[in-house]
């Protein structure tokens, strides 16, 4: 058994709101990411998947909990101590345009991390070394070298996301956290970028935490999936196990709600009642009990723990859908 590249232990993130209220965005979230795997984080808006991603990157400070990256505890590191680790953990965001300074050329944008961080020997990189690396990166993301001299607005959304990926890869990171990287793209372009993520992982041995709301995209790219609801992981396991044999009623409802591009007779989407409750005053016990078709008295009283059911498949439910296991 190899050691995890990243371990998150009991992560909590609370935001103080006016009038003494607190919003618990992350509630005791624990997970492990093995080297070379793709962990998909799915859930609806407000479930905490982006907050989790930002906490893993140390872009947002935790309220409590620990993050161990490559054997080192990083959640308590200061900015300066964190800096050398930043090159190991990179990120790609949803809005490809907002991620790029519109007044700077692509070559400049991608070269910035190379200028900021010294090379493996602790030396400042020479101009020639940077140029060589830029050429390599352009080749990696299938953009012409001429793109380096141009500005962000000259590119389409898909091309801009390639630029963002090139910049994230500039320092050869081990882990890339991608937050909804293909959600803003048209389907035909989305497929190109999903394939690019897959190819790069194979070529460079990367590890991803891939955050998305689109179950089909997550299924395509992930080796394991964590499903989040109102700040907590409700189900975790191998992609095929979670998406084909969901144990948590929420996962099952989420899958059933996805409209598929196929005409089927007599079946309509399974409807979940109501909206996601406010994370400021989440329901007692199991947070899903207000919308759950299987909820019983116990569910509103007692919060279920995330417990293993079979192999690595775990769910936080008092009455997991066992027949599907």
């Amino acid at each position: 058994m190899s050691t995890p590249l990243l371990r998150a232990i009991d992560l909590c993130k609370e935001y103080r709101l006016p009038r003494g209220q607190t919003l618990r965005a992350l509630d005791n979230v624990s997970l492990e990411v093995m080297p070379g795997e793709v962990l998909g984080l799915v859930g609806e808006s407000g479930c905490g998947k982006s907050t989790l991603g930002r906490c893993l990157l140390r872009l947002t400070d935790l309220s409590s909990g620990a993050i161990i990256f490559d054997g080192q505890e990083i959640s308590s590191l200061g900015e300066r101590a964190m800096r050398p680790l930043r090159r190991q953990i990179q990120m790609v965001f949803q809005d490809s345009y907002a991620s790029l300074n519109p007044r700077r050329r692509i070559g400049d944008l991608i070269a910035e991390p190379l200028r900021v961080h010294p090379d493996e020997n602790g030396q400042k990189r020479s101009r020639a070394a940077i140029d060589a690396r830029l050429a390599e990166l352009m080749e990696l993301v299938s953009l012409p070298a001429s793109a380096l001299a141009r500005y962000p607005h000259e590119f389409s959304g898909g091309q801009r996301q390639r630029i963002n990926i090139a910049r994230a890869l500039a320092l050869s990171p081990q882990l890339v956290v991608a937050d909804e990287p293909v959600s803003a793209l048209d389907v035909s372009v989305q497929a190109q970028i999903v394939n690019l993520f897959t190819d790069l992982r194979e070529r460079l041995g990367l590890t991803y935490v891939f955050i998305a709301h689109d179950l089909a995209v997550v299924r395509q790219i992930s080796t394991r999936v964590a499903v989040m609801y109102l700040g907590a992981i409700v189900e975790l396991g191998e992609t095929d196990a979670v998406l084909h044999k969901p144990a948590h009623p929420y996962t099952a409802a989420l899958i059933a709600a996805v409209p598929e591009p196929v005409i089927r007779h007599g079946t309509s989407l399974t409807l979940l009642r109501g909206d996601i409750p406010s994370p400021i005053s989440p329901p007692s016990g199991c947070r899903f009990h207000t919308r759950c078709p299987k909820a019983e008295a116990r569910c509103s009283a007692e919060a279920p723990e995330l417990r293993p059911l079979q192999n690595d498949h775990a769910a936080a439910c008092h009455f997991p859908l066992m027949d599907s296991l």
Binding site: E44, A253, A257, P259, L269, L272
Partner: peptide
């Protein structure tokens, strides 16, 4: 909208 709400 989120998928569960979209379905509704």
């Amino acid at each position: 909208l989120d998928v569960t709400v979209q379905a509704q």
